[in-house]
């Protein structure tokens, strides 16, 4: 959808160029292409901002960041978190996060966790919780997704470098080394 919208923007801008003088056409096309790129960028940004948060930061000790599509942002108390965020804690730092289904997680120091997938729409049977712990420590306390899911193997997954952890409504501590 985003792609098609971008494409239509590019097309509409380039077609308006047709009426202009041929001599300056090349420059205009490259300019309009640039303009279209900027527009597309702005559009992507607004999509990002409108996407609803899947979780919020509830506890921050020390320095913690989130990385989304290569872009880093420092994490502060109350910050929203989104699908595909990678959470990173520094040395002597820790982070507490609660998800919209009441799942609670906390990360110890020097940890790295990717919020792979999260869907919480029980009335449409859309449930998913998937995180990947690359390194460090994770304390997980299950929420409503663990209670409501009928397919825990598919819908509830914690991946670590050593293997996959499947959960049936519980509290877990995981240590991962790369």
């Amino acid at each position: 959808m985003i792609l098609s919208c971008m494409l239509s923007r590019v097309l509409s801008v380039t077609s308006s160029v047709k009426s202009s003088a041929i001599a300056s056409r090349k420059i205009q096309i490259s300019c309009s292409f640039l303009f279209a790129l900027i527009l597309a960028n702005m559009f992507c940004f607004s999509v990002r901002a409108e996407e609803s948060p899947i979780a919020y930061v509830k506890v921050v000790n020390g320095t913690c960041i989130a990385i989304q599509q290569g872009e880093e942002r420092p994490l502060n108390l109350g910050d929203p978190l989104f699908k595909a965020d990678i959470l990173k804690t520094s040395k002597e730092s820790s982070l507490g996060v609660s998800f919209r289904d009441n799942t609670l997680i906390s990360l110890g120091s020097s940890s790295q966790l990717r919020l792979e997938n999260f869907e919480f729409d029980p009335d449409n049977n859309q449930l998913a919780f998937a995180v990947e712990l690359f390194e460090g420590t994770l304390l997980y306390i299950s929420g409503l997704i663990a209670k409501l899911t009928k397919k825990p193997e598919e819908e509830l997954r914690i991946t670590t470098p050593a293997g996959t952890v499947t959960v049936r409504g519980t509290r877990l501590f995981i240590n991962a080394e790369q």
């Binding site: 509830k58 506890v59 000790n61 820790s94 982070l95 507490g96 996060v97 609660s98 009441n102 609670l104 906390s106 990360l107 110890g108 120091s109 420590t137 994770l138 304390l139 306390i141 929420g143 501590f173 240590n175």
Partner: peptide, 13 residues
């Protein structure tokens, strides 16, 4: 083992 992460646990909903 769990002390550090327990201390960072968010409050209960």
């Amino acid at each position: 083992l769990t002390a550090e992460t327990e201390a960072a646990q968010p409050p209960k909903p």
